[in-house]
Simulated assay, not measured.
Amino acid sequence: MTLKDLTIEFTGCTSLKDKPSADSLEFGKVFTDYMFTMDYTNEKGWHDARIIPYQPIQLDPAAMCFHYGQTVFEGLKAYLGKNGKVLLFRPKKNFERMNRSNDRLCIPHIDEDFVLEALRQLILIEKDWVPRAEGTSLYIRPFIIATEPYIGVSPSKSYKFLMILSPVGAYYKEGINPVSIAVETEYVRAVRGGTGEAKTGGNYAASLKAQELAAKDGYTQVLWLDGVEQKYIEEVGSMNVFFKINGEIITPQLNGSILPGITRDSAIQLLKYWGYPVTERRLAIDEVIEAHKKGQLEEIFGTGTAAVISPVGKLLYKGETYIVNDGEIGSVSKKLYKTIVGIQTGELEDPFGWTFEVTEQRHITKAG
């Protein structure tokens, strides 16, 4: 199914949900009235695109997603601009990345233009769910699951693609205030050649044990090291990570086991645009600790769709605690956060053409 063939069937709700107040919003707890779905079979390809009331999905107990983890997902947000327009931030990049994940998980490609148009239509229907308060947004979760009822180990012959929406507040309870992270030295998340650079559920399941242990010690997230030598920094559980050392901003280079974050790429482009020296390379945790001891570790911050920019104020490594920038948000973190959020909400100029305005509804048919 391609954009030129686009026909999306629409089935209306018999009643609509009450919308939560902005001050009650948590991350990923509440979902809107509608969702988008379409199906895939080897014989028909992607077909039966439809927007329907949000509801449970029915799957055979032998559906392959339950047994072999053949799933991928994405995460992006819609923002309400001051002019009342709904804006997306680089949405095509999310669907491009989904297709890279599809490649790794042996899932058929989606037509990126088609699903972006489907998302536009879904958001237009759900526009009143986009929260208006500062720091809030409408989180968008596209995902694909393998649905063939078969418990042999092979790629599925059928799939379901869905998009669901959730109005959200801050991802971390700390908001833009610095978080604490623990360097993980026992468990590993991914290795080169594995699925680390794909956005698939198994990567996150592998991270839960270390995250649980870190949380018991009062740490918000885990900082992962490479899976072979456990020496080189890779990423934080839900974010890519940056270090400002002696004026230079360093982030681990993409190596096949690190997720290629869209906010990561946006931060790199902005930093270079502003004239900061930015380096993508292997970075050993011992180099970071040594920089801290010399007084040269100026900032650490994470980047990701959920939190946008998350400064790090405390780092735990091998039982030692290291305070970063006196536990305060750094100037680079603050500037990046204000700029990216300003572009996302249309309050600041967008020199890169990153924002996508959700406009008029089209190509939709009503069921029945």
Rank of each mutant, 00 (worst) to 15 (best):
A49C: 12
K4F: 06
K92P: 00
Q253R: 15
G304R: 11
K293E: 03
P178N: 00
N255E: 07
Q344E: 04
V312H: 04
L271V: 05
E298Q: 12
T147A: 10
A182F: 04
N83H: 10
E184C: 10
H109R: 13
V188D: 09
K173I: 05
P53W: 02
F10D: 03
G304L: 07
Y171G: 12
C65G: 05
M1Y: 13
P61N: 04
S331Y: 11
G169W: 00
R282Y: 14
S156E: 08
T345C: 02
E287R: 03
T195M: 07
M64S: 15
G201T: 09
M98T: 09
I329Y: 12
K4D: 11
G327Y: 13
F352R: 02
K335Y: 08
I364S: 06
I123Y: 04
Q211S: 05
A210W: 15
P252F: 03
F95V: 08
G247T: 06
I289A: 00
L336T: 01
G342N: 08
G295C: 02
S238F: 03
I123P: 03
I181C: 00
P53R: 05
E117P: 08
E184Y: 01
A182L: 06
D217Y: 13
E174Q: 14
A170Y: 12
N94P: 08
N94H: 04
N42A: 15
L80V: 13
D18A: 12
L105R: 10
K334Q: 12
I164V: 15
E298C: 03
P167I: 01
Y150H: 08
I140W: 04
M64W: 02
D350V: 08
D226T: 02
T71I: 06
F66C: 11
R104E: 02
T359I: 07
